[in-house]
Write a protein that binds this DNA or RNA. Structure first.
Lengths: 213, 213
DNA sequence: ACCTGAACACCGTTCAAGT
DNA sequence: ACCTGAACACCGTTCAAGT
């Protein structure tokens, strides 16, 4: 338990964050605890409190120092396809760092690469004809949908064995015409649905134009 | 600690769920623990495991037995306004039962009233011109946005005192034109943004029509 | 300044034992 | 069948004490 040669005994924020990142990558955030982290660093849980105020601050530091490598060169040059590609990048980052989403929602600072992505999306929106203010509002909607999808789109039950059909013909669906109609095909339809499906809804609208508009 | 008259000693699922609901309503889900729940029932944590397999099942039962009173009479009769009103109802339910959202995402069964609301939204979508399959896909998008917004739209930091402006002019924003331009007004714009703003984006599209389309 | 050890106030879950 | 008590394997955080 006591440090004897080899690894340096003294802590610093970088060592703490590196080790924390390793735990999250290998076992998920749910396995990141002050106690486990300290043990991995041959230290004590309480020693960590000299470097971060609490666990929330540790998570915020983890996000601020995250390596968000975005390959800007691979993006389409302009138009709607660039916007779609940027949103897909954002979605992929969120899926990879799902645990960070609720922390981001509290308003913690992102790093330069995260800010760059936001700026690119805002720019792409204005290039498609929105004013800066409209682009801001559109980005809010994109954020909620993208984060929501990244966070919630894995119907993995812990028990109950095989995944049930999306809409069941269970007793509570009796007499509900649309659900009864969709029940047999909802599984296939759900498989067709992707983040990009929803993204297109968001950009182009889900409803047909009102006649005369 | 031991039961002496007054309340009945024997447990049953209804008593357990009622007490659990009271804890969640009064103190939030984070305060709902098997131990606290058992103590409130003058019982032991382990006794609860005769009625539910684990805590996840307790939460699923809580959702299945939730009282989702939806005032159908107060809804507009038809058209887009009915659809908007239904989605706003769904949003309000999600905000009131925020803790249930991640559980719902795993695919647990909702009760008859929840199924009714889904059916009404699907019906409203078809009445606006979508095929049943298109309505299903549109409902998926609505669900992710609505759940995402309900879950993530409260920028409440635990520390750092006053809420910071939405887009800061922090070092990481240097040279990012749109963020720098929006920084001074982002606070006001964020205040203007509501669930309904995003909902309209979703239904009507955020982008202007391509010319010639 | 940096770190330890003990302590406080908690968790979910299993399992053998009692009635 | 229904319930208890002890136990296992954990949590985040505070605080007095050591160097």
């Amino acid at each position: 338990m006591v440090n004897t040669g080899g690894r340096p005994a003294r802590l610093n924020l970088d060592r703490i964050l590196d080790e924390a990142r390793e735990i999250v990558a290998a076992d998920g955030v749910e396995k990141l605890s002050m106690r486990r982290l300290a043990a991995r660093l041959d230290s004590t849980p309480t020693a960590l409190y000299h470097y971060v105020r609490d666990k929330d601050e540790l998570l915020a530091e983890l996000i601020a120092s995250a390596d968000l490598h975005i390959d800007a060169a691979a993006l389409p040059e302009g138009g709607t396809e660039r916007l779609v590609a940027l949103c897909e990048r954002m979605h992929r980052l969120f899926v990879a760092h799902r645990w960070a989403i609720p922390v981001l929602a509290t308003g913690v600072a992102v790093n330069a690469r995260g800010a760059w992505l936001t700026n690119e999306i805002l720019t792409a929106l204005t290039e498609r004809g929105l004013t800066p203010s409209e682009a801001f509002l559109a980005h809010e909607t994109l954020w909620y949908f993208t984060a929501g999808h990244a966070l919630l789109a894995h119907r993995h039950r812990r028990h109950d064995a095989a995944a049930p059909p999306h809409y069941t013909s269970a007793p509570q669906a009796r007499g509900l015409a649309m659900i009864e109609e969709l029940a047999p095909v909802s599984g296939d339809l759900a498989r067709d649905y992707s983040f990009t499906t929803g993204l297109r809804h968001l950009l182009d609208g889900t409803l047909p134009r009102e006649r005369g508009a």
